[in-house]
């Protein structure tokens, strides 16, 4: 993917993301976007607290940020041609998020087949080496025909 193509893709994805009501409700923003990877974050908000005693954000809200960031990373895969959807997402919670701090998620597509994108992500406040949570997920994926031209043509021939 050229710089220009990436820029365009990010612009489209940003526009799409800003139109998602749930992301808007959690005030998510895009911090970084690269080939097959992304960083997104959301601010601390008393409304999304899951433990009133400590003021710690609910795991579900962190999960929502991770899911969104993973989906965005899939969108940034060079061969991604259509919108994605989560097939499954596993969250591992390592520790409580620090109350009052912005939470970041960093996601990376480590393998994309013709039908599935496999994604890993971490959530943290300031240090990715000290994660709040990690996630692994499988996402719906359709590869561009252009990429595996010969193969795709063979397959469609066989199917017909």
């Amino acid at each position: 993917m050229t710089e220009e193509e990436l820029r365009q893709r990010v612009a489209v994805a940003k526009k799409f993301m800003s139109a998602l009501p749930f992301c808007h409700a959690l005030d998510m923003r895009i911090d970084e976007a690269g080939i097959s990877e992304a960083v997104m974050s959301m601010p601390y908000d008393p409304q999304i607290v899951g433990d009133p005693e400590t003021g710690v954000v609910h795991g579900g809200a962190v999960s929502a940020l991770m899911d969104t960031c993973c989906g965005f990373a899939v969108n940034l895969h060079p061969e991604c041609v259509s919108p994605t959807a989560t097939i499954d997402l596993r969250m591992d919670y390592m520790r409580s998020a620090k109350p009052g701090e912005r939470i970041f998620a960093k996601a990376h597509v480590y393998k994309a087949t013709s039908t599935v994108a496999f994604v890993r992500a971490i959530a943290y406040e300031d240090d990715p080496e000290n994660p709040v949570a990690t996630a692994t997920g499988a996402f719906v994926f359709s590869k561009s025909r252009k990429a595996g031209k010969g193969k795709a043509a063979d397959k469609s021939g066989a199917a017909a």
Binding site: A19, L20, P21, F22, H58, G60, A61, A64, D67, P83
Partner: peptide, 24 residues
């Protein structure tokens, strides 16, 4: 609620809202 929507094109509830609901 409108704010739960993740993909306005379908429209579908955001996976994160679903996950939050299940975990709760």
């Amino acid at each position: 609620e409108e704010k739960l929507i993740g993909n306005p094109a379908i429209p579908a509830i955001h996976g994160g809202a679903t996950a939050s609901f299940l975990e709760t």
